[in-house]
């Protein structure tokens, strides 16, 4: 139940993209077409789950015992960058169809602040192993849902008349704002669930 509340909070109420402001660069870049949005979303879920687990373990079993917590940022970003490369190489050899589907998104993910952001949030919020896993996957799922919803809207823009200065990124941001407003409707669901408990 506790984990359900955590997951629902991460997916709907504190949606990583629309309420926590993480991962906006790829969001604006790849949310123009539905199929790229789905591909990006899948790649993000996979990478976030893997990188959060590894960085969580590094923090707990290396940085804290060695008393070098101040190196957190440096170590985490290097781990994430290396991990993305490894995943890319692995997929290329082991699962070519999957690589074909996700491959082009992987390099983009290194600079996706959602990946580093979730790794850092897991540490700052003092999550246990299971909480970390639930939170990371749920956040990534929330990212994917938001990405797909907006991609569906932005596909329509191509056949709609939009004032010229607002075309492109500007209207994308305004749409995201309205979507964020819609997600505000979920506020309070978590306390209701907790009260049920």
């Amino acid at each position: 139940m506790e984990y359900l509340v955590l997951a629902i909070t991460a997916i709907l109420i504190k949606n990583i993209l629309l309420a926590e402001y993480l991962g906006n660069c790829p969001f604006i870049g790849v949310s123009k077409k539905m199929d790229t949005a789905i591909g990006m979303g899948m790649a993000v879920i996979f990478t976030i789950a893997l990188s959060s687990t590894i960085t969580w373990a590094i923090q707990k079993y290396a940085l804290v015992p060695l008393d070098i917590v101040y190196l957190q940022t440096v170590v985490f970003i290097l781990v994430i960058a290396a991990l993305v490369q490894l995943v890319e190489m692995f997929l290329k050899k082991a699962a070519p169809p999957l690589y074909k589907a996700l491959g082009i998104f992987l390099p983009l993910i290194t600079t996706n602040c959602a990946v580093l952001g979730i790794a850092v949030l897991n540490i700052r919020r003092g999550h246990t192993f299971i909480e970390m896993l639930v939170f990371s996957i749920a956040s990534a799922v929330g990212f994917t849902i938001a990405l797909i919803l907006i991609a569906g809207l932005r596909e329509r823009f191509e056949i709609t008349h939009i004032p010229r200065p607002l075309q492109g990124t500007a209207i994308g941001l305004v749409t995201a704002g309205l979507m964020a407003l819609a997600f505000f409707g979920f506020a309070g669901v978590d306390s209701a669930l907790k009260a049920l408990q």
């Binding site: 629309l18 200065p165 941001l173 704002g177 505000f184």
Partner: peptide, 25 residues
């Protein structure tokens, strides 16, 4: 209050970008 919440951030930046595009032309 809308402006200091997340939705306001997106809308505000989007509109400012639009204004910048007008000024730049």
């Amino acid at each position: 209050t809308f402006m200091v919440e997340a939705p306001g951030a997106f809308v505000c930046l989007g509109l400012l970008l639009g204004i910048m595009n007008v000024l730049g032309d």
